[in-house]
Design a binder for these strands. Structure first.
Lengths: 223, 223
DNA sequence: AATATGCAGACTGTCGACAGGCGACATGAA
DNA sequence: TTCATGTCGCCTGTCGACAGTCTGCATATT
């Protein structure tokens, strides 16, 4: 018998939260856009209560912000915010990679290796979509292997705050190879069981990402 | 004319959130206690809506948890949780102290020094309350001086999750002096402008705190 | 023309009500 | 006694309504 048959009905507020989040990620709502409880409620043909709840949850996650007049906007990180977010991510992810370098199992290392080699072949074939996916997977595996649920949650929340800019990651000077090199160095340090080096390499790699992002953002702003 | 005169009324849901948080911190609600929307609403003589909103906010902060039947309980960290939380805190705080060692101003260093010396005299006089306060202040100053609002917010949220155990921090073998020594070493590294060392000392210091806490918790559990 | 006043509409904060789900208890059957 | 079924009450999810606040525009005033 299918286990999933007796599934509890998902409450509206969760569905709405999910949907709004997707819309923010997909750019249907853009940074700075204002959101209205009533309008969303009408759109989903439900009352304001669950919508309100979903919005509040997203405010707590930082994806929406409320000004002093209780008006809701899609979060648009300032440059300072972007730096702060990356600083926090580096802090957490470098800790994760330190742990992984100390205690990763053989199987886990194989998974990292496979992701890397898949990444390499994706670069050869020029499959952008695949590359982005595998790069994200590499980071995710490291977080997973650190075996710290809370760290994972924090990193994911931080990532989601700059998620709107994720497609910029592969744009820029020779990015695919630079990223691959960065990941490769991290992997190298892990199999050497050298936590310090792994942490250091991750910091450098993330710094590259940040620098690239900031350059592109500035470039865009100038035009 | 007093600037504060035209203050916007604080909405109920914020007041309730604040009050509930205080109750959790003060142990009026203990870990594992169940909370009811209706009951709290009756107590404050308001409707369920703002109460519900406050509860959801505290769930997002992690101070309350909801089981699969939508029942609300005060969060009680497992031992694994405590380790995870501390791991995240170390990651963030060591990053902060690294930054502080790099760029702290003279004035900021003086503030740290004063907190330390106040701490020393509080130990001499045996003022426990004062000691706890100054120890917290030392950590807070470091976070503040790192000039990263987001990092500060994350650390505060993590702290609040084990806040219930804060009074255990000074209990145990010669804790006041051990803590003072830890803070002193960190301070020393900062004035030496040695980020690596500062980070290392903070990690050791926090590790002491954690070990002490776990010991006391195990000890309690045995009885 | 520039400023003040007032009105209308749009939103948010809060309320009370209803319904659907779940557990506790009771009653009855084996 | 043990287990199945039905009922009751509690609690959460959702709804529609109302009140207060703020914005923008139009009208009035000097």
């Amino acid at each position: 018998m299918n286990q999933g048959m007796l599934q509890k009905a998902i409450p509206y507020y969760e569905q709405v939260q999910q949907t709004l989040k997707e819309r923010i990620f997909n750019g249907i709502y853009e940074p700075g856009d204002r959101l209205y409880e009533v309008q969303i409620a009408r759109e989903f043909a439900i009352s304001r209560s669950p919508v309100r709840e979903a919005i509040r949850a997203l405010i707590n996650e930082g994806l929406l912000i409320m000004d002093d007049k209780s008006q809701i906007y899609v979060y648009e990180p300032s440059l300072k915010d972007v730096y702060e977010i990356y600083e926090c991510r580096v802090a957490l992810e470098s800790t994760a990679v330190t742990l992984v370098a100390q205690k990763a199992s053989e199987d886990q290392i194989l998974q990292l290796e496979k992701t890397l080699s898949d990444s390499a072949s994706a670069i050869k074939k020029g499959e952008k979509e695949e590359m982005a996916c595998l790069n994200a997977k590499f980071h995710e595996l490291i977080i997973d292997f650190s075996d710290n649920m809370r760290l994972k949650k924090l990193v994911n929340e931080l990532k989601s705050l700059t998620n709107y800019y994720r497609f910029l990651n592969l744009e820029g000077e020779d990015r695919p190879n630079v990223i691959y090199k960065g990941h490769f160095d991290i992997f190298q340090a892990i199999i050497e069981r050298n936590p310090e080096k792994a942490s250091q390499k991750l910091k450098e790699h993330t710094h590259d990402d940040l620098e690239n992002l900031v350059n592109l953002l500035n470039h865009k702003r100038e035009r």
